[in-house]
């Protein structure tokens, strides 16, 4: 299996599989968020269910592995590609029209990663981590964090910006991942690129609804 590290297509395959796995996670995460729109109590039940239980911990570890593989491979591939490009740069910048997102995947990924650090601190650290290590002040009810957080316009803006970066990342990432596993031909390439925009947009809307809903509507209800 050393070809998954030593060969370029092997490395791309790891990028692709981990990326598709993370997309599945995003859809899973988004579905649970959307419960908030219907019932805060139900959302808190889900948070409790995914606390410091063995299955939630196993899930967290598998997910962390997915992120680590994706990030490490992305860094290695980017460094290798910079080296392959060579030190000499064109005097007239490359004018070839290629999708902006496809040329900036690492930067977009970095933006998502920085957001992830903030997000993990604001939620996961306060909830599962503290509960696991029996640190004082572990929060069980997700709503106790979400509602005050999204009543601050600054965090609503930060979260929406991160979702926008994620949208760009996914518009290229989704079809590119399927292209890498070989699922493409002259007919499917158009379909997959369109599907990529649909998937990215659905994920963007699904996540963006929560901060917007809480900022504009929830305070009025509560």
């Amino acid at each position: 299996m050393s070809w998954l590290i030593s060969s370029s297509i092997g490395r791309k395959l790891m990028m692709s599989i981990s990326g598709l796995f993370l997309i599945l996670f995003l859809i899973f995460h988004m579905s649970m968020n959307l419960v908030m729109v219907f019932s805060m109590e139900a959302y808190d039940m889900i948070c409790e269910f995914l606390g410091a239980n063995w299955y939630a911990i196993v899930g967290t570890l598998v997910l962390a592995a997915g992120f680590i593989v994706h990030i490490i491979y992305a860094t290695v591939l980017t460094l290798q590609n910079r080296k392959a490009r060579g030190g000499n740069h064109y005097a007239v910048a490359n004018k070839t029209s290629a999708e902006w997102s496809s040329k900036n995947m690492y930067v977009l990924g970095l933006a998502v990663f920085l957001f992830l650090c903030l997000h993990m601190y604001q939620f996961w650290f306060q909830m599962q981590f503290k509960e696991l290590l029996h640190i004082e002040g572990a929060v069980v009810q997700g709503s106790a964090i979400v509602v005050p957080l999204f009543q601050q316009p600054l965090f609503v803006a930060i979260y929406l910006l991160a979702f926008a970066a994620l949208w760009f990342h996914l518009t290229h990432g989704f079809w590119s991942a399927l292209h890498t596993v070989g699922w493409n031909n002259t007919v499917w390439i158009g379909r997959l690129k369109t599907l990529s925009y649909i998937v990215a947009t659905l994920i963007f809307i699904g996540f963006a609804i929560i901060p917007i809903y809480i900022y504009f509507c929830y305070s009025a209800v509560a």
Partner: peptide, 13 residues
């Protein structure tokens, strides 16, 4: 790979 060409990221350029 041995000759040092980069890893394709499907930019389509």
């Amino acid at each position: 790979d041995e000759l040092g060409f980069g890893n394709c990221t499907n930019t389509g350029a």
